[in-house]
Design a protein around this nucleic acid. Structure first.
Length: 566
RNA sequence: AACCCGGUGGUGUAAUUGGCAACACAACUGGUUUUGGUCCAGUCAUUCGAGGUUCGAGUCCUCGCCGGGUUGCCA
């Protein structure tokens, strides 16, 4: 055709966020030899959650976009909190999200030797000293937000003495917490981070990688920027709360002879309505049994989200959509759901399942007869093909799809009225059978044999279409319906976030599935027509007791109409 | 209270750097449809406030107001 003939005036204008603008400028100025090199630096002290996904997408995404690379670096400077199992889980999560660090897997602990050398050079230049103040004393000397601090009495120790003491700290000659190595900056700085910050503390604790090789450990501020410089990071992206640390980050770099000059840029972390991302609180939910574990499908952890059936692509799409800025914002959970549906609508095959079954007996349908109907797997993707759906005299339909009496707007089965069974026939409800308690146990219907193939022989219109499953062929399975973990959009409001827990966040039902679902593969996500997207839980599949998790419901226009009416 | 950062619809993010406030989600209308799904069309903010500079201000200046961060040997 006439490609390239016309300029694409409608081409989407490229919207760059502020970090991309900074990178563009750095590139234009010829900084960092034109390289873009980022890193994702998790501390292995817990599982990753949706908030981390944003940081991962930004760091790996930017490297990808600019033809650079992104390192995975574990920020393991505090052995009292870190464990190997987290190192492994974090790698699994990042990989699942679709990112790759090639051979660039690093650990801050891998730089401990080098960091000691750098610290030593700082001491030699009179820019660091060993301090004997206790934690409490140091706090008193630090001053406050409004008052300047006072110099430590050990601040002017001779270089030789500092060197000797620092060596002996490493050799384990002193008690835990009895001494620290501190940078010698400015006790009167309005920025508290610059008031002679601690670089090393004495902690006798086995480290998950270095074992008992060390009894001093670097602080975050001391280790982070230097690790960045060692790796040749050009843009060190972190969250807003480190903004006040940037002057310190720069001070270390300015006072050392490092080959590279990374630049710290801060952005707002991701907050979502109806959930929390505090590691401490997530742990409490697990430990107190409010959820079934770190990978409970209601958890905002990547493990939980993955188990729930949300595709990695949806998370990447979401992170792309929410943008990057410095404003502390909270994104509506509905936006996250939208991304999930956006991906699943294209990729998930359709099936039929009845979650709250009521039996329909088609009295004029021959007993023992079974028809094999063809059903489309994905109306938006012909290549997904079709499958066979058995139809017979008795079928299950959704209890909610029947009313004895109903308003005109109710396009489903009503006593004396007609509805179409999807891919099958039009049926009319003739009789409602109830038990002693008044509960409906069966609907007696008749079908129109001429109504197959979507048409009626006399051309009459039947507006409603409902899903169904042949009773004799149905597979019974547990289906778990999830809702927001927290009923309130802002669980942090008030003094007890647990009070906002949604008591109905998990509901288990016994459902009837069409036979094709028996062969769903573990982890597969399908759409139960008219209901939502459901994931065949890989854990339960392995246990031989399959269950489907509701990943997210379909947009429910009728639900809204009905709610408004009542 | 000191210092740092921020403030654009219900929610987020943009605005050629001083030139008609755009995109997405949500909500609401209507259309298509063998999923009340998808899809399509439409409606929904004069940018925290007050001054100032300018032909022209979301963008620049001044003064306020509001929100977040910081007083770990956590990250």
């Amino acid at each position: 055709m006439n490609d390239a003939a016309e300029p694409r005036a409608d081409e989407a204008p490229e919207r760059k966020h502020f970090i991309e603008k900074i990178i563009d400028e750095d590139l234009a100025q010829g900084r960092n030899e034109g390289r873009v090199h980022t890193r994702f630096p998790p501390e292995p002290n817990g599982f990753l959650h949706i908030g981390h996904a944003k940081a991962i997408c930004i760091n790996f995404g930017l490297a990808e976009k600019y033809g650079g690379s992104c390192n995975l670096r574990f920020d393991d400077t505090n052995p009292t909190k870190e464990e190997t199992r987290f190192v492994e889980a974090i790698q699994e999560d990042v990989r699942w999200l679709g990112f790759d660090w090639d051979d660039r897997l690093y650990y801050a602990s891998g730089y401990f030797e080098r960091l000691v050398e750098l610290a030593t050079s700082l001491i030699e230049r009179g820019k660091a000293f060993v301090c004997d103040l206790s934690g409490e004393e140091m706090r008193a000397y630090r001053g406050s937000l409004t008052e300047p601090g006072r110099d430590s009495p050990f601040r002017d120790r001779p270089v030789e003495e500092n060197l000797d003491l620092f060596r002996r700290m490493q050799a384990g000659e002193f008690e835990d917490g009895s001494r620290t190595l501190r940078a010698r900056i400015d006790m009167s700085s309005p920025n508290l981070n610059l008031r002679d910050p601690v670089m090393y503390r004495i902690i006798r604790q086995e480290h998950h990688r270095t074992g008992d090789r060390w009894c001093i450990y670097p602080t975050y501020d001391w280790a982070h920027g230097q690790s960045d410089a060692i790796e040749g990071i050009t843009h060190s992206l972190c969250s807003l709360e480190f903004e006040n640390h940037r002057p310190l980050y720069d001070w270390y770099l300015d006072n050392l002879d490092l080959p590279a000059r990374p630049r710290q840029i801060e952005f707002a972390r991701l907050e979502l309505t109806h959930t929390i991302t505090s590691k401490r609180k997530l742990r409490q939910l697990v430990e107190e049994g409010h959820v079934e574990g770190w990978d409970d499908p209601r958890m905002p952890t990547l493990g939980g989200i993955r188990r729930r059936g949300v595709p990695a692509e949806a998370i990447r799409h979401f992170c792309e959509e929410i943008g990057v800025a410095k404003y502390n914002s909270t994104i509506d959970w509905a936006k996250f759901d939208f991304s999930t549906r956006e991906v699943l609508n294209r990729t998930a095959e359709r099936r039929m399942a009845v979650l709250d079954p009521v039996k329909v007996v088609i009295t004029n349908y021959p007993e023992g007869q079974v028809e094999e109907l063809e059903a489309i797997n994905n109306p938006g993707d012909e290549s997904a093909g079709t499958r066979i759906l058995p139809f017979s005299r008795e079928v299950w339909i959704e209890r909610d799809d029947f009313r004895e009496e109903a308003p005109r707007k109710f396009f489903r089965l009503v006593t004396g009225r007609e509805v179409r069974l999807r891919y099958a026939y039009v049926i009319r409800c003739d009789e409602v059978i109830k038990d002693a308690a008044g509960e409906i146990v069966e609907l007696r219907c008749t079908y129109d044999p001429e109504s197959g193939g979507g048409k009626t022989s006399d051309g009459r219109k039947v507006k409603g279409i409902i899903h169904w499953v042949s009773a004799g062929h149905a597979v019974t399975s547990e289906v778990i319906l999830y809702d927001h973990l927290f009923a309130s959009p802002d669980p942090e409001e008030g003094d007890d976030y647990l009070a906002h827990l949604n008591p109905d966040s998990r509901q288990v039902v016994s459902a009837r599935l069409e036979p094709a679902l028996a062969s769903a593969s573990p982890g597969e996500v399908v759409q139960f027509e008219r209901l939502g997207y459901f994931c065949n839980d890989p854990v339960r599949a392995a246990d031989g007791a399959p269950a489907f998790h509701r990943t997210v419901g379909l947009r429910d226009t009728w639900g809204k109409i009905e709610k408004k009416g009542s």
